[in-house]
Design a protein around this nucleic acid. Structure first.
Length: 582
DNA sequence: GCCGTTTTCGGCCCGACTGTTTTCAGTCG
């Protein structure tokens, strides 16, 4: 039973309790526990085995008992009781925008609605409008909600959402009277996927800006519209919210809608201790309701609370407030720290352009080095290199380096880790390369024990310098393969293998949480674009963002190092591997 | 159901918009 599966049990219980009208705080407790569990890197089974369940935040006596029950039996009696009481399809109604628990209960009780199909029928037959608080307009809105729910409603990867939001900002920037406009919400925090776009702005007169917003070419329909807040749905089905305040309140607004909700709640609790209330307009004295005037920046708010500025990427209530209080916030890595790309492809395998084109692009970015790491022969579809072609490529790179291209080209390979943990090329040859990236591209369906052992075995050979995209996930397309990340991190530390944060926004693998865990355990990280074309060097922004969310300082990221330091590390780790194997 | 250098009981963020209301409940972020 994975943590993810156990979390799903509690989420399901929360859904069922919600449509039953159970105590909202109890429901929240279950959801919070589920979120926490999903984020753990250690398996609940092993936490349970050492009797430490109640040390997990949000897990108390009740939920701990249920976890033990789930670990032992696969389910819990409490869930089965709820299931017996509530129709299977009822919780799904909560996904319809505008429909909450109270209305779902009424629909179920009064009309016998037990699924979205039931609701659609009832609305079409005008049976909904007879209910208290429901009219013809409500019926219409429900039918629209059902229609749009069936059409869309998946989360967007950051790599799609961020550029889209930036285009919206560009389009809106010309609106009359607009003085500030920023992307807030989960995009500003750079989460790997996002559910909607939050824009915040400032204007003395919000009317014309709101009108321009509703009339954006991207807007398919207006969901709601008021003087300070409007929402549209785009043609692609994504919801976009715009909030506007007076320019002097902009800092408070930006902070409020950057979130995360959990982070903001913590700050409000801290404000309460100072007799102050925080909302999107500023900070107010609880007693007099008078505004406590702060400066215009987010930093002023943190200063008021006695905290240093906390960057958006780590505002998740995952320990950042405690770290800030203790003066121990990390100096997060920045894009300008990057000195090279250690995983990328050329047209020798499945890259789009010749080595020289990739090299020139990297040089123009100001990088000091670039590794060419084409695929190995097992990846036939990608034109992977066999021994003979790899030797020719190595000679080619030697020639290019001899011509002093203004950047160091490292000879590398992305070698396949085969099904049994062997490497796809002869290890003597691999040892001649400057850098070896190892990765899994096959047999994704192996069970967790087999996959974990396979990767650990590959690392223990000591030849792989960097383990690429360690979990194999493709966001929104493919689940990570079953692998015990904790064990892989352990092996990476023991063998001094760096773990990759693959910066491709479809991967972001390691994820923020896994990367943070890896760092905590002492692993080194390499942030790589895995570029197959020069334009994909632009993906660094996503890799950096993930690293920042993982609390990474540049010190622990290989490719922020100078070429000399990097080469020294590569040499020493191989010597250590050789020594270990003797 | 969880949690506690204020508390082991009584809290658990705060405000905008909608649709239906004669003053507010429900929903959302």
């Amino acid at each position: 039973m994975t943590n993810y599966e156990i979390a799903r049990v509690f989420t399901r219980m929360a859904d069922l309790m919600e449509v039953q009208g159970e105590n909202p705080f109890k429901i929240r407790a279950y959801r919070k526990a589920a979120d926490t569990i999903r984020d753990l890197t250690e398996s609940l089974e092993s936490i349970a085995a050492r009797g430490a369940l109640e040390t997990v935040p949000g897990v108390g006596k009740g939920i701990a008992e249920k976890i033990e029950e789930i670990v032992a039996t696969g389910t819990t009696a409490a869930l089965e009781v709820l299931r017996a009481q509530v129709p299977e399809g009822l919780p799904e109604l909560l996904n319809l925008p505008g429909l909450g628990a109270r209305t779902v209960q009424t629909l179920h009780k009064e009309l016998g609605v037990g699924s979205i199909a039931d609701l659609e029928r009832a609305a079409k037959e005008h049976r909904v409008r007879g209910l208290p608080g429901m009219g013809a307009k409500s019926e219409e809105n429900l039918l629209r909600a059902i229609e749009s729910y069936q059409r869309l409603s998946e989360r967007w990867p950051l790599g799609r959402a961020l550029p889209y939001a930036e285009r919206l900002v560009d389009a809106l920037a010309k609106a009359p009277g607009l003085v500030r406009l920023e992307i807030a919400g989960s995009i500003r925090r750079m989460r790997d996927t996002i559910g909607d776009i939050d824009l915040v702005g400032a204007a003395q007169d919000p009317g014309p800006v709101m009108e321009a917003f509703r009339n954006l070419p991207q807007a398919r329909e207006t969901l709601l519209s008021g003087p300070t807040r409007s929402s549209i749905r785009t043609h692609e089905g994504l919801q976009v919210d715009l909030r506007l305040v007076k320019p002097e309140d902009f800092g408070a607004l930006l902070h409020h809608f950057t979130g995360s909700r959990e982070h903001n709640i913590r700050l409000r609790e801290m404000a309460e201790a100072k007799g102050a209330r925080i909302n999107e307009y500023g900070v107010f004295d609880v007693k007099t309701d008078a505004e406590i005037r702060l400066g215009p920046d987010e930093a002023d708010l943190y200063r008021f609370l006695g905290l240093p500025y906390i960057p958006p990427e780590i505002r998740e209530d995952r320990g950042e407030i405690e770290a800030a209080l203790a003066g121990r916030l990390p100096r997060l890595i920045e894009a300008s720290d990057v000195r090279g790309n250690l995983h990328g492809h050329s047209d020798w395998s499945d890259g789009a352009v010749p080595i020289t084109t990739m090299v020139e692009a990297a040089r123009s970015l100001g990088h000091a080095y670039i590794a060419i790491t084409d695929h190995s022969k097992a990846l036939g579809v990608a034109g992977g290199l066999d021994e003979e072609r790899l030797r020719r490529q190595m000679a080619e790179i030697d020639r290019l380096n001899a011509a002093e291209p203004g950047i160091r080209i490292l000879k590398g390979i992305e070698v396949d880790i085969l099904g049994d943990g062997a490497l796809d090329l002869e290890e003597g040859l691999l040892a001649e390369l400057d850098i070896v990236i190892g990765s899994v591209h096959s047999h994704f369906r192996q069970d967790e024990a087999t996959m974990t052992a396979r990767i650990v075995r590959a690392l223990e050979r000591g030849v792989v310098d960097v383990l690429a995209h360690p979990t194999g996930r493709l966001i929104g397309q493919r689940e990570p393969y079953a692998v015990d990340v904790e064990r892989v991190i352990e092996a990476a530390v023991a063998t001094q293998t760096a773990l990759e944060i693959n910066a491709n926004p479809a991967r972001l693998d390691l994820s923020d949480l896994h990367a943070r865990r890896a760092r905590e355990r002492g692993a080194l990280i390499s942030i790589n674009t895995d570029a197959h074309h020069p334009r994909e060097f632009g993906h660094f922004r996503y890799g950096i963002a993930t690293a920042r969310r993982a609390w990474l300082e540049p010190e622990y990221v290989l490719n922020t190092w100078s070429l000399e330091r990097l080469r020294k590390w590569l040499t020493e780790r191989r010597q250590a591997s050789d020594a270990r194997r003797q």
